[in-house]
């Protein structure tokens, strides 16, 4: 749903994809509050409830993933990876409700990729020990390769965000074309395609986005 914000004379249209980002964030915040409340009420003598069991399973899954790709010492990144992973899964599966999935807007995926980019650059900077070492890192192994190194670093967030955006957007366009072409007979064909484009592709792309984020951050951190 589109929003129209009026500030004085100017009208700002907030597209529905951006509005849906807020919806996804709201869902995740409510989820976090509920989990926080339940985990504080739980006593260690009793067996955990089924809801908490699933949450523990999810946390352990992400932690083992972070351990195997980034190493034991980088377990501090696990909360960020967890948030990224479940934000993306919720956002990609949003298409199933009939609303626009937020990740079909390039601004959403690019801002997510920029967070990863900033994190990896921060760690590069910190490990190089100041500006001089950081800039020197780009001249390796030879000085004339500097433009290549810079472009290679800048291409990471672009390719990362385009991959997610292209997959979700492309799936959405194919579904829209099919729905408009087939009319009333569309549900016969589109149901299995929803499984592929929305569920399989959505979960896979969320996984790949977080996996590549881990590799970029881990590569800069190590």
């Amino acid at each position: 749903m589109e929003l129209l914000v009026k500030i004085g004379q100017r009208e700002i249209i907030i597209p529905d994809s951006v509005f849906n980002v807020w919806l996804v964030a709201l869902v995740l915040i409510i989820f976090a509050i509920v989990v926080n409340k339940k985990i504080k009420e739980a006593s260690i003598d009793e067996k955990p409830s089924s809801f908490l069991n699933i949450v523990e399973l999810m946390v352990e899954l992400v932690q083992s993933l972070v351990k195997s790709t980034m190493g034991e010492q980088n377990l501090g990144f696990a909360p960020y990876i967890f948030t990224l992973f479940f934000f993306l899964i919720t956002a990609n599966l949003f298409g199933l409700t009939g609303l626009t999935p937020p990740t079909s807007d390039y601004s959403v995926t690019f801002s997510l990729a920029l967070i990863t980019f900033a994190l990896s650059q921060y760690w590069l900077f910190k490990n190089a020990g100041g500006l001089k070492g950081y800039l020197k890192g780009y001249t390796e192994p030879m000085a004339f390769l500097t433009p290549l190194n810079v472009i290679g670093d800048l291409a990471n967030p672009v390719s990362l965000s385009f991959r997610l955006f292209g997959n979700i957007m492309g799936g959405g366009i194919i579904m829209t074309l099919l729905y408009s072409a087939l009319g009333y007979f569309a549900p016969i064909v589109t149901a299995p395609l929803h499984i592929y484009f929305d569920i399989f592709s959505g979960v896979l792309q969320a996984f790949i986005f977080t996996m590549l984020s881990m590799i970029f951050i881990g590569g800069a951190e190590a």
């Binding site: 991959r163 292209g166 997959n167």
Partner: peptide
């Protein structure tokens, strides 16, 4: 495969 897909996505 996801990395190989990049050119197609471009």
């Amino acid at each position: 495969q996801a990395v190989a897909e990049t050119t197609g996505i471009y």
